[in-house]
Design a protein around this nucleic acid. Structure first.
Lengths: 202, 202, 202, 202
DNA sequence: AATGAATGAGCGTTCATTCAT
DNA sequence: CATGAATGAACGCTCATTCAT
């Protein structure tokens, strides 16, 4: 029974979190009120403060929740024994897939979390740095197998891969690319992988 | 004399704009008050409203000012008759140089303008799209000269180049790379160019 | 068994009341939350509402509890057949002793109850007035025995005695006098009694 | 002209302060909103924050304003060369007169300021202590002229005088005495002076 | 009886914006 | 042009109180 209650509480918490994703995605962090989140979640706004200390912590939690999935997937990929090109493809696929599956979450991750001043420090940066670290490791391993050419810094390369993925996601988010169009998605994916692995040059 | 006054007015306007750059860079668009900008500019806050309709227009103007230089440089590069690798290097150099020269402006461009909801539409996006269009044209021309391999979409490639540059600038802005270190700058530049043109693969 | 339960209930009630004294003394009536009182009492905050209608009634009850002892002692003193100087001394002693014994209760009585707007009417004032009435009676009796000089209004004198005691207690509460110092206590006591009975004049 | 503006600003500030006195007196510090003060002053509530940092500072200022008059009068009295009985009478008169002249200010001083937790420290206590110090000095001088009997501590005596005055004012404030009744006022005054100087004893 | 999730009135405070001087 | 007093919408947050369990 205690568990049932805990679960109910956890459900509520998750409901508010989901509502926050929706609302942040729609109006941005600064453009929405706690009351909007509460309304979207179908609860009184006071309740939000039972589950989250304040608005900022709500955003932090949205991030933490979303990031967890991404970084665990990344860790898997790093360990896998497949060619670099496939790994890079998998990272891009995963990001694109995540966006197709829950565009609003990605929207918040891409447009809000990463750019909120409060997030420019501590935990958040660490999370991004961890992801880059993992990806850098992944590239280092590929180098050990002779898959990476000389003169390429693995960690800067990881950065660049993320930059590429992020800007393509942004293009999807902002509507320059259509996530519903398989052609758009395939083209974006292959261009990202091809450039990252083989460059644009002939 | 009318001109003298106009010039004085223009100076004032520029002073406020400069102050806005400083303050936006320091505390972010949402984290600062018009009064902060005015104080930084050394004027009464009411005066800001003589030169700019409102806070948002101030941010728009900051962007427009900063972007002008960048896009005119881009247009030059597009027209120049040099190999693709050099053009890409020039774009990266220009971005990095701009950051070294006026890190606060870049900070605002990178961390504020691009991510403010209000900017996710209208003029701002057009500006970014123009830049990508120009860069895409540049790549198309290179393709015409046989410098670009098949299967690469020029405009997505332009996106990716911008994503790469942006994330490296972000690394500088957030302190993961040191803009004062020539080694860091050179490594970032060469990695960006090498990956973009030749990929990481061996 | 009904009694056992009643007793348990009464214990709970008393525990909450004691907790209220502690918390009110520490942070003031307006400066604390029901939740603070509950936590101090080691119960869930909802339970407070089983025993007290609301926060204000809690304060009323704290007062009533504390005042009961004081006024019954006062009634005893009134009846006793001892010289006025001794009676006054006993009142002062009693107040000081009460403070040494339970400074937090006195703190609440002195700093909170007497000054809460809600207490400026009804029951509370009556209680104070009763005390003053009793003390006035006490002085009247002394007058009947020739111990009070002409031109002194007994009830105003009672007021003044209370004012003197209260301000000395305040001095203890606020730390200007040290309740642990026997010298301070003795001096305060004798000064109060001497002035009240004999005045400062030579 | 600068002066005219300063004066206008000072007038506004004073108007808000006066309004605060009225409203605090009526509903208590905790029982009123900034908006009430503003309405009473006939200004927008935002304006209150131009002149006072926050609600607490407003109360502090109300106190400071009211106390200034009282303590300067006290300093005069201390210096005067009149018998102790007259000085004590003058202190009591001044306090009563102040109450008759501006009962709401006194109400705030007596019922709010002295009892607000935030005021139980720093500046406020110092002010009270200063007043007691001055009055203690006054009694010490009287002692030097042989007007005070042995065994009386001047500073405790000063405390007690203040306690007596305060409680009588409280009686006026709470309606147990009628400040409009000359008889009540005269009786209260003479009782206070007589007890303080000569005691109740015969 | 006991718990604490849920509610929502209420309020302090901020700050963009206006406008009289 | 320049100033900054004045306005008031807006919002985050608190916390007393209720009530289902």
């Amino acid at each position: 029974m205690g568990e049932a209650i805990d679960t109910a509480a956890a459900d509520r918490r998750r409901a508010i979190l989901r509502a926050a994703v929706v609302v942040f995605a729609e109006k941005g962090y600064h453009g929405c009120r706690i009351a909007d989140v509460a309304q979207e979640a179908g609860v009184a706004y006071g309740l939000v403060y039972h589950y989250f200390r304040n608005k900022e912590e709500l955003l932090h939690s949205v991030f933490a929740e979303g990031w967890k999935r991404f970084s665990s997937r990344l860790a898997e990929l790093t360990a896998a024994e497949v060619p670099l090109r496939e790994k890079v493809g998998a990272i891009v696929d995963f990001a694109f897939e995540a966006y197709r599956h829950d565009p609003r979450s990605m929207r918040v991750l891409i447009l809000e979390v990463a750019r909120t001043p409060a997030f420019r420090d501590s935990a958040k940066r660490t999370a991004f740095e961890d992801a880059i670290g993992l990806t850098g490791d992944l590239i280092e391993r590929a180098r050990a197998r002779g898959e990476v050419r000389a003169g390429i810094d693995s960690y800067l390369a990881a950065c660049i891969l993320f930059g590429a993925v992020e800007i393509l996601l942004t293009a999807f988010v902002l509507g320059q690319l259509d996530p519903e169009s398989d052609a758009d998605v395939a083209r974006a994916r292959s261009t990202a992988v091809e450039i990252f692995v083989g460059g644009v040059g002939s």
